[in-house]
Design a protein around this nucleic acid. Structure first.
Lengths: 196, 196
DNA sequence: CTCATCTTGGACTGTTCGGTTCAAGATAGG
DNA sequence: CCTATCTTGAACCGAACAGTCCAAGATGAG
């Protein structure tokens, strides 16, 4: 039972991430993480660090993984902005539809807990939300949206994406989540049609 | 120090509510509640019940207090629907602007924690979100909005209201929060203009 | 085969958790 | 003044918490 590492780091990190994602920082004990990852307590501390740094790693992992997908979805925004933003939200909807993953969003989960989290973790969550807005801003700029509209919609769409996370936690149907998004897409479509 | 009650129940409940609201269920200990309310542990248990039922009482208190304000804001929706919905969001924005109250929203806070809360609490949070949608639906119907639009906007606006809670937790500026809302109000204004 | 290296499981520490119990003592009615 | 009633503070309980430590033993290099 020793010698070389007996677990897959990627699998273990995913399991820890899912656990934090589902239950949040405070409601996740190190024993929970041990059970979820299959790793013993001492292995968690030696390989994954303490609870705080593990949470930070999970947050980065989450932000990178889905950040890449959001980027990809928005990549052809200049050609078809509406289709791109629709694809952006599809990343979220598909994630929620995946039965292997918790509802909601780890970033939203973290943001709601900011007052009781370490400053380092709080800063990372804020940074992830800023990155999401920046992503949208870049895409909307490439789509030649009016300057003021770019900033407004970037902020609005990032927020609506978070609202989908909250509503999915409360058991909203896929149809309801679609509706939330479609109203915003309607507004965006209107802005795109009237761009310079 | 005994004989008749030596504390104001309303003040104590408010203090407990604010504490849950700020830190969430899991990160709030009974000792925290004791400090926040100024009540001893045994007084909390005898007068306020255990942690679960106290949380439930705080949730109801929150839902009633702000539910009434949301109702009032929407009360003249038939005359000026847009102004009414703007007033609806102002309830949220004013709450967030109040330095004596935490950012965010206790309902959103609760919804995000549903997987680790008791079924009774989870049900109450879902019920509060449903009530919010019903409120908006009633108001938009009274405003003669098109039938399909009524349901869509009720779901959308309730969700956007939750998104404001998340973003305020992450330190979004009042201006950003306004922008999130204004984009939705723009969409609503468009729908109102094209009503039958 | 031998042995230094490194992972692992489990025991352990001190603290905090939610919840209960109860004696001390203040109160209000008579 | 007296006494039944009720609140209160603090001690207490077992469980769970985050984090540490170390012997047992598997491994791979020589």
């Amino acid at each position: 039972m020793a010698g070389r590492k007996q677990f897959d780091m990627e699998v273990a990190l995913d399991a820890a991430m899912v656990r934090f994602w589902r239950a949040g920082y405070a409601a996740t004990s190190v024993d929970d993480l041990s059970r979820a990852t299959g790793l013993n307590r001492s292995s968690i501390y030696s390989s994954l660090g303490d609870k705080d740094s593990l949470y930070l790693r999970c947050l980065d992992r989450y932000a990178t993984r889905y950040g890449d997908r959001y980027d990809q979805a928005l990549s052809d925004a200049s050609a078809e902005p509406l289709r791109a933003v629709r694809a952006f939200f599809d990343v979220t909807l598909q994630r929620i539809a995946d039965p292997a993953l918790p509802d909601g969003c780890l970033i939203a989960q973290t943001a709601m807990a900011i007052p009781v989290l370490s400053p380092a973790i709080a800063a990372r969550a804020v940074q992830a939300l800023d990155a999401q807005q920046a992503r949208l801003r870049t895409a909307l700029t490439a789509a030649n949206l009016r300057g003021t509209d770019v900033d407004d919609f970037a902020v609005h769409l990032a927020a609506v994406n978070q609202s989908v996370a909250v509503m999915s936690r409360a058991g909203a149907s896929r149809q309801q989540l679609r509706t939330i998004i479609d109203v915003s897409l309607g507004a965006l479509s209107h802005a795109v049609r009237s761009r310079d």
